[in-house]
Simulated assay, not measured.
Amino acid sequence: MANQKQSSRKSRIEKHAKKKKENFILNILIGVVFILVIIVGANILLNNDTKATVNENQSEQKATEKENADDKADKNESKESSESEDTEADSSSEPTDENANATEDEKTEDEKTEDVTEDQESEEDEEENEIIYGQSEDPNVDQVMINQNWKPIGTVQTGDHISSYDKGTTDREEMEKAMEYATGVSVDNMIVWWVGNGGKPNENVVGTISNKDKSQIYRVYMDWVDGQGWKPTKVEKLKSIDR
C-alpha cells in the first residue's frame, strides 16, 4: 500500500511539473508572438510614414519645379514683350523715307518763311533807318519825315492817269493806301480831312489825315509814278488838324 501511494504521488508530481513546463513554453511562445506582432506593426507604421514623407517631398519638389517653370516662362514672355515694344518704338521713332522727305520739305518751307520774314523785317528796319527827320517853319508842324526807300504802292489803273480826289474812286482809294503806307495809320482807322492838288495834276498831291481818336495827325505829300501808282515823298507830323 505504501508503495502504491508513493507511486501515485510521484506520478502527480511529474504531471504537475510537466504541465508547468508546458505553461512556461506556452508563455514564451505567446511572448515571442507578441513581440513579432509589435515588430511587424512598427515596421508597417514606419513604412507608411516613410511613404508619406517621400510623397510629400515629391509633391513639394514637383510644385517647386512647376513654379520655377512658370517663373521662367513669365520672364521669357516679359522679355519677348519688352523686345517687341522696343522694336515697335524703334520703328515708330525712325522716320520712313516718305516722312523724312515730308519733314525735310516742311523744314525747307519753314526756312523759306523765316527767310522771307527776316527779309521783310530787314527791309522795314532799313526803311526806318533811312528816315530823315527835320523841322519846318510851319508852326503847326511838329516834325518832318522823309524816307528815300519809299516806293510806289502799285496801281490797277491803266492808260493816261488823271487825278481824282472824290471819295470812292479808285484813284482816291490808292491815295489813301499810299498815306497808310507812309504813316502806318490803317485805312480802317483813318479819317481823311482833306486831299487835293498841291501844284501839278500828278505831283505834289497833299492829304491831311489822322487816326480816329485824333492822337496822330499827318500831312502826306505824294507823286504819281506811271504804271506804279502813288509814291509818298514827305510826311509832316502835325500838332493839330488843318484842312
Rank of each mutant, 00 (worst) to 15 (best):
T64W: 02
S164K: 12
K62Y: 01
Y133T: 15
D160L: 02
E173Y: 05
P95V: 03
R243Q: 06
T50L: 14
N23P: 00
N101H: 04
R219M: 09
Q4R: 08
I191Q: 08
T169I: 08
I209N: 02
I131D: 12
I209P: 02
K18G: 10
K112V: 04
E85N: 10
S59P: 00
I25S: 07
V187Q: 11
D242E: 15
T103L: 11
W150I: 06
S215M: 01
L45H: 11
M179C: 05
I13D: 14
G196N: 11
D110L: 10
K51G: 04
E88M: 11
I132K: 13
N3I: 01
Q61D: 05
D74G: 00
V156N: 15
K15H: 06
I44H: 11
L36A: 11
D171S: 14
V54Q: 07
D71K: 05
D226W: 00
I30T: 12
P232Y: 08
N197C: 11
Y165A: 01
E22W: 08
D142T: 09
N147M: 07
I28R: 06
G207M: 04
N101C: 03
I25V: 08
K15N: 11
A178I: 03
I44L: 15
T113G: 02
I191K: 10
T64Y: 06
Q120I: 15
T108Y: 06
Y218M: 09
F24T: 06
V156Q: 14
A69L: 02
H16F: 11
M145K: 15
E85Y: 14
A69W: 01
